[in-house]
């Protein structure tokens, strides 16, 4: 009996250390496994293809993909009805896009857009959905107008955007 008394008193301590040890092994292991998974996803998956990375139509075999980039300056024109044509560029390559449907009001030349659809055999991107991309810059309209009137708007926006 005498020998068990001290060990029983020490028991809660050992249990706590065991729980701490369990977490010390499980949590870093789980975090490490997640980090590896996240890294693997980053290397093999894209949310949207940049125009210069968009695979050719035979490579995609009619698969629906996303194309992300800037709407090229001077490329946006409206066809019959709700039909609209524009080009998406990332500076290195430009992809012509054809779309028939609801175009969000924030889709404008020089601004970002994410287009969902398929690549046709002639290289045109047949879009089924166009989403406008909004960036992290917030400004009052008067300030934007003032910057435009002094000609410093583009410079300011480029400096604030990353």
């Amino acid at each position: 009996m005498k020998a068990t008394a001290p060990s029983r008193r020490a028991l809660p301590f050992r249990r706590r250390q065991r729980r701490a040890l369990l977490l010390g092994l499980v949590l870093p292991a789980f975090a490490g496994a997640t980090a590896l998974a996240v890294t693997a996803i980053s290397r093999t998956q894209v949310y949207a293809y940049a125009p210069s990375a968009l695979p050719a139509s035979d490579e995609l075999a009619g698969r629906t993909v996303k194309l992300g980039g800037l709407v090229e300056e001077g490329s946006l024109r409206h066809g019959a009805g709700t039909e609209v044509y524009f080009a998406v560029t990332d500076g290195a390559a430009t992809v012509p896009v054809r779309f028939d449907g609801f175009l969000p009001s924030l889709v404008a030349e020089g601004d970002g857009a994410v287009v969902t659809g398929t690549v046709s055999s002639d290289g045109t991107f047949e879009a089924t959905l166009v989403a406008a991309r909004h960036d992290e810059l917030y400004m009052a309209p008067e300030v934007a107008d003032a910057l435009k009137s002094t000609g410093r708007y583009d410079e300011y926006v480029a400096q604030k955007r990353r």
Binding site: V38, S42, H134, E136, L137, Y138, K160, R161, R162
Partner: peptide
């Protein structure tokens, strides 16, 4: 961290951070 840095690690439709960023908030 995946939620917080998702907009940095990957291309997203969601915009990047406006308030907490290296060169100060991009907001008046």
């Amino acid at each position: 961290p995946i939620i917080k840095f998702s907009v940095e690690w990957w291309d997203t439709l969601h915009q990047k951070a406006t308030v907490i960023r290296a060169d100060g908030p991009a907001m008046p």
